[in-house]
Design a protein around this nucleic acid. Structure first.
Lengths: 337, 337
DNA sequence: GCACCTTGCCGGAACGTTCCGGCACCTCGT
DNA sequence: ACGAGGTGCCGGAACGTTCCGGCAAGGTGC
């Protein structure tokens, strides 16, 4: 608990210790007010003085103390990020995190991870795939801070901003594609999570089936279900409903996981059984055959969330702003019969 | 840039605005010094007053302003986390991140992600899989802050602490296992990254081969190589060196990616060709057949890094402390011939 | 010459916390 | 009765920043 900074505050900043604004002011021969104004571009400062201050700052390696700044302005230049803990979707979330980190760095913001419900002292929050029954999400939602969610939130409170993708349209497109490839009995294997995304997929599927006079063949697996469970499900499905000619898996990675089961049921993916996934990932690309999937562009999703949050914080976007992120179907051999 | 907090500082804290220490002191009828002492457990305070302060704090929903505290003490209660951006190893890194986040939350620390080289104002850094040729890593290493690395660092500077796993012993164990299963020509497919982990694997393999009078059949693929590249590699390997009876893949996910290629070369994994991975993941578990792999326990790795960093910060561990994290080989059908 | 505005700069208070030093009171031992 | 030592509490300075208000010097119009 000892103080880290060196003793004499009048020395021109020891090694490893960042110079203070007063040091810069002294170095430029001006007052700290002027130094601050010059650096922030706020007050009225002549070009010559501004240049002198800038030089001094660079020479001394000045970087403003964030705590002091934040104490004074009550702006932390920090946003919090919460992601659900599902290692099954690791690739999606990881890409999302990098998208957030990159865009935040660009905007000069720090990103802090929040796992518990303890609301951190930040300027705003980003919640990825918020599920209404998650108490942590609930606390964060009602913390009185600006919140941007990735995908819509099914709960009561309204976030300040939302970035969402039109999964309904995408799934319809995917189902149409399967139909064009000859599929007449497509099955949707969805998860039972409370994420809005899952629900949209199920509704869209039901709607599409009704529209095409096709029986609803929905199967549900627990969110983050073990591959064995998924396989068992598919095994039963193919044995019990052999007329199944296409399978769409909602969960990340599920389609790749069930491939062996399909094969051992004597079906040939891409030939007499079409297979597709609602989430693209490395596993889809590397599967044999590669699996048609919807690219959710998680990295873009991450950076767009930060963009929107910044706009909200700057007052450039109204509370309740909702933006759409385009997503793409990627057709691969598994549906190219 | 407007101030967020409400106007009159004498009101007992408006809604949504955290109470200040002065509010608590007033609420408990003591001075702010006493309030601070009572909450921190520092000075000499009678039990009765301490209780009164604690009550007032709870009643007012007091939570100390981190900026003010940090400004005063120059302790930020925040650590920075850097992970290399390789989405192929998404599952490993994701688990690592959660391990860090969880343990940090337990220790009352914030975690901020750092992607650029800009050194954040934190108490310490955790660098996951630091590669010597990464400029960002370099800057962070030499920031003059306590650093804990996950896996040893191959560069010049010495981190304050290291958590590492004995990949050499594990790979030896794995190779011995393959040999016991009849393999006489095991091939190692390594990546050409500069991570210490990769180098250790290659050295261990070379050493093991020499010891057993087995030809060194090392193949290198770029780190994060596309699955097609890996497949091409394996295809050539099996065509050119048909006496290959076991393949060990270093890179995360690689073993699962090359499975189809092996199959289409007419080899049967687990029967006439053993396959194993140096990194366990969902893909290894769900592959058909499931693939023997080394479980690196990334989540533990994450939390152990935080533990060590905390110990270093508290002065409970000496600079340069190195700790080992046990890792396990998980035998599955792919080597159970 | 005066009134007035603009420009360039600065003093100093405030943000919320920690903690040094000090003061008043009480309890003993002598 | 008195000093020594302990206990319980507090005043106020300091951390580094921002920014309000003010002041002097120079310019402009009359």
């Amino acid at each position: 608990m000892r103080r880290v900074r060196a003793g004499k505050p009048s020395t021109p900043a020891g090694p490893g210790v960042s110079a203070t604004l007063a040091d810069v002011a002294r170095g430029a021969g001006v007052s700290k007010t002027t130094a601050s104004d010059a650096l922030r571009g706020h007050g009225r400062v002549s070009d010559a003085t501004r240049q002198a201050v800038l030089d001094a700052a660079r020479r001394l390696g000045y970087s403003p103390n964030r705590s002091a700044r934040s104490l004074r302005t009550s702006v932390t230049d920090t946003i919090a990020l919460h992601i659900p803990e599902f290692l099954t979707s690791a690739e999606y979330y990881m890409a999302f995190v990098f998208g957030v980190a990159e865009q935040a760095a660009r905007a000069g913001l720090n990103v802090t991870l929040v796992s518990s419900g303890r609301v951190p002292q930040v300027d705003g929050l980003i919640l990825c795939d918020p599920m209404p029954d998650n108490p942590v999400v609930d606390q964060l939602m009602n913390a009185g801070l600006p919140v941007v969610t990735a995908e819509t939130y099914g709960g009561d409170s309204r976030p300040s901003g939302v970035i969402w993708s039109d999964h309904g349209t995408s799934l319809t497109e995917l189902l149409d594609h399967l139909r064009a490839r000859g599929a007449r009995r497509p099955v949707l294997i969805a998860s039972d999570s409370t994420a809005d995304w899952t629900l949209t997929l199920q509704q869209t599927y039901a709607h599409w089936c009704a529209e095409h006079g096709i029986p609803r063949l929905l199967r549900k697996a627990p969110f983050g279900a073990a591959p064995e469970v998924l396989r068992g499900l598919v095994g039963e499905l193919l044995a019990g409903t052999p007329e199944t000619d296409a399978i769409v898996c909602a969960a990340d990675g599920a389609a790749a996981a069930v491939l062996p089961e399909i094969r051992s049921a004597g079906r040939v993916v891409g030939e007499d059984l079409l297979l597709a996934s609602c989430v693209d990932s490395l596993a889809m690309r590397t599967a044999e055959p590669p699996i048609t999937a919807i690219d959710l562009r998680p990295r873009h999703m991450g950076s767009e969330c930060v963009r929107l949050l910044c706009a909200l914080l700057a007052g450039e976007a109204p509370h309740g702003t909702t933006r759409t992120l385009a997503i793409d179907m990627v057709v691969r051999a598994s549906t190219r019969a």
